[in-house]
Design a protein around this nucleic acid. Structure first.
Length: 569
RNA sequence: GGCCCCAUCGUCUAGGUAGGCCUAGGACACCGGGUUUUCAACCCGGCAACAGGGGUUCGAAUCCCCUUGGGGCUACCA
């Protein structure tokens, strides 16, 4: 029987690293017909946010990762929130204390800091100096009376080296002195991660612990703790996955989004400084104020992000970091594309969950042959811990994009429709007003497209009122104003008006013959029409576009376009 | 700084546990050409790697050592 678990701490949205960990554990449980448990590690009162657990669960469900036991699902090993298991941890802490395998500490943060600095100057790793005599309960009372914090440390057996066996890396040996006595109960009474997870893994009968390499150094301590607590009980098997690194170097982390925004703002400021110097400052499109400096000075940017101007200033200087929603809002306002880190980011960027699951699975694992694009069922069938790779993998967004295209092709249309609908709802798109049937048609017309974002962009014009069309400056210049675009458009308008009914075939015949007449490619006549009805050069195929928009709207938009730009020509 | 892990095309990787089947395979990206009503897609072709140095061996991408490089951890975070 295989039992795996995903044990996130609820500090925010599920990010790619966490999602991959969850996926590997889930895949392994499914492959073996075992149990997959979701356990919320909310032992840090400072970091937990009340909605985070819910967000994480939503994201897991979006990915299709369902847990057999855990919050909302229930199960025989509950509760599945560590904050609700305090009595259990207390019991085991007491047991260790009674057996003299753990001891009380009363150090202040400053004292510990000093110890660490001392170790550093001596070029040694810091390890807590164990007292010769363990303090008793009376000392605890005394310390408390003095207002000192009371913590409990585990006395790591110092006589033998700690050897761990890892599925990915085989045996790794650590000197016991390197591990040192670590805290298992914090001064607020909560257990630390290293303690709670050992207790829970035992009680929940976890057989395989699949987690990131960042936990490798925790493992010897956790195993020692396991032995102290549960004797010879069979240890779980460990598999430490390689870290996923970002293309900017280093571990892929949430910090990248603020970093990207900060860099973007700085770059904008720099460019602006140069432009101001050269008196070249032009209004940027789609923005009320004309410069980033103004946006900062007037407090506009801070307001968009819902933070104080001082906070923004401190952020730009690299001193502090506002929360994610603020970062997102400011980036959107400035038109800065942030790297996707959280699973919801990918959802908002128009990726399919099928893509994410497939791509995530290949981060540090592969089936051993040349297969890459795989549906979930195939992933489950092929997954094997023996094929986890040792070296770090880079999160390659370009490859992800191409994966998404493949999955758009192979995912059943009704499934894509479902995903598209969810996407439209979240981004509040006018396209959401379409009936399912129409949406399906649109999706079909977008075959070969990469993301749901593209489908929305291409079809958006159909659901806007005629007066809501926004003309892309570049498109207008290139297609309408340069050459005889407007003249051609006028002819097209006449011909369309003359047609009794706008059928796809009729439109095609008309445009093709006109192009032939002009001895030019179809683009010559189609593009002005496209810009007229969409405002941009990118849309659904033109014949269908016109036909779906209808004669009345098409003619109205052409007229508006003609009138608007005739003067400028 | 200390401890630990890792090292094949630009990127993800196959091959490494059974050394010869590897003049190193695939995918993404990139470059060239074709197709084309936009963006994509699609078709054809191309570029491109065993980090360096020592060993072991008849023979090493594959085993060993060193160097270099990258990463992780070093919390009363998980």
């Amino acid at each position: 029987m295989v039992v795996t678990r995903f044990a996130p701490s609820p500090t925010g949205y599920l990010h790619v690293g966490g999602a991959r960990t969850a996926l590997f554990n889930w895949l392994w449980a499914r492959r073996a017909g075992g149990t997959f448990i979701l356990r919320i590690e909310d032992t840090d009162q400072k970091r937990n946010t009340p909605t985070a657990a819910q967000q994480v669960m939503d994201d897991l469900r979006w990915l299709g990762i369902e847990w057999d036991e855990g919050p909302e699902a229930g199960g025989p090993n509950g509760p599945y929130l560590q904050s609700q298991r305090m009595d259990i941890y207390d019991k085991y802490i007491k047991q260790l204390l009674d057996e003299k395998k753990a001891y009380y500490c009363f150090d202040t943060a400053e004292e510990l800091d000093a110890f660490r600095k001392e170790a550093e100057t001596q070029k040694k790793s810091f390890s807590y100096t164990r007292p010769k005599e363990f303090p008793g309960e009376s000392d605890v009372e005394k310390a408390k009376a003095q207002g000192r914090d009371v913590t409990v440390r585990f006395a790591v057996p110092q006589d033998v080296p700690l050897v761990i066996t890892d599925i990915v890396r085989d045996e790794i040996t650590f000197a016991a002195s390197e591990i040192g006595d670590f805290i298992i109960q914090k001064s607020d009474g909560f257990p630390t991660y290293n303690f709670a997870c050992v207790v829970d893994d035992y009680l929940m009968k976890i057989t395989h612990i699949i987690r990131g390499q960042e936990h490798l150094m925790n493992t010897p301590g956790q195993q020692a703790l396991w032995k102290a607590l549960f004797g010879d009980a069979q240890l779980p098997k460990y598999a430490h996955m390689s870290v996923t690194v970002s293309d900017t170097g280093g571990k892929l982390s949430k910090r990248e989004r603020p970093k990207a925004l900060r860099n973007a703002i700085k770059t904008m400021q720099d460019i602006e400084t140069v432009r101001v110097g050269q008196q070249l400052l032009l209004p940027l499109p789609d923005k009320e104020s004309k410069s980033i400096q103004d946006d900062i000075k007037t407090g506009k940017l801070a307001e968009v992000g819902g933070i104080a101007p001082e906070e923004l200033d401190s952020f730009i200087k690299g001193k502090t970091t506002p929360d994610m929603p603020a970062i997102g809002a400011m980036a959107e306002y400035l038109g800065v594309a942030l790297p996707e880190i959280n699973i919801v980011d990918f959802f908002k960027s128009g990726y399919l969950p099928e893509t994410m699951v497939n791509f995530l699975a290949l981060l540090g694992w592969n089936p051993g042959d040349n297969r890459e694009i795989m549906p979930i069922g195939e992933l489950i069938e092929s997954f094997d811990l023996s094929r986890l790779s040792k070296s770090n993998s880079l999160f390659d967004r370009k490859k992800l994009l191409s994966f998404n295209m493949e999955h758009m092709k192979m995912t059943p249309p009704e499934k894509v429709l479902e995903h598209f609908r969810a996407y439209l709802k979240v981004v509040n798109s006018p396209v959401n007003s379409a009936e399912d049937e129409l949406l399906s048609t649109i999706i079909k017309l977008c075959e070969g497209t990469r993301t749901l974002v593209d489908i929305e962009r291409k079809s958006r014009f159909l659901f806007l009122d005629n007066n809501e069309i926004q003309y892309d400056e570049k498109a207008v210049k290139k297609i309408l104003l340069k050459g005889d675009g407007l003249a051609v458009l006028a002819i097209v308008r006449k011909k369309l008006a003359a047609m009794e009914q706008l059928t796809e075939q009729g439109i095609e015949d008309m445009l093709r013959s006109l192009a032939e007449e002009k001895q030019a490619g179809l683009g010559k006549v189609a593009q002005p029409l496209r810009v007229a009805i969409c405002g941009t050069t990118v849309s659904l195929p033109i014949f269908e576009s016109v036909q779906m928009l209808g004669k009345e709207n098409t003619l109205a938009r052409i007229d508006t376009t003609l009138k608007k730009f005739a003067a400028e020509n």
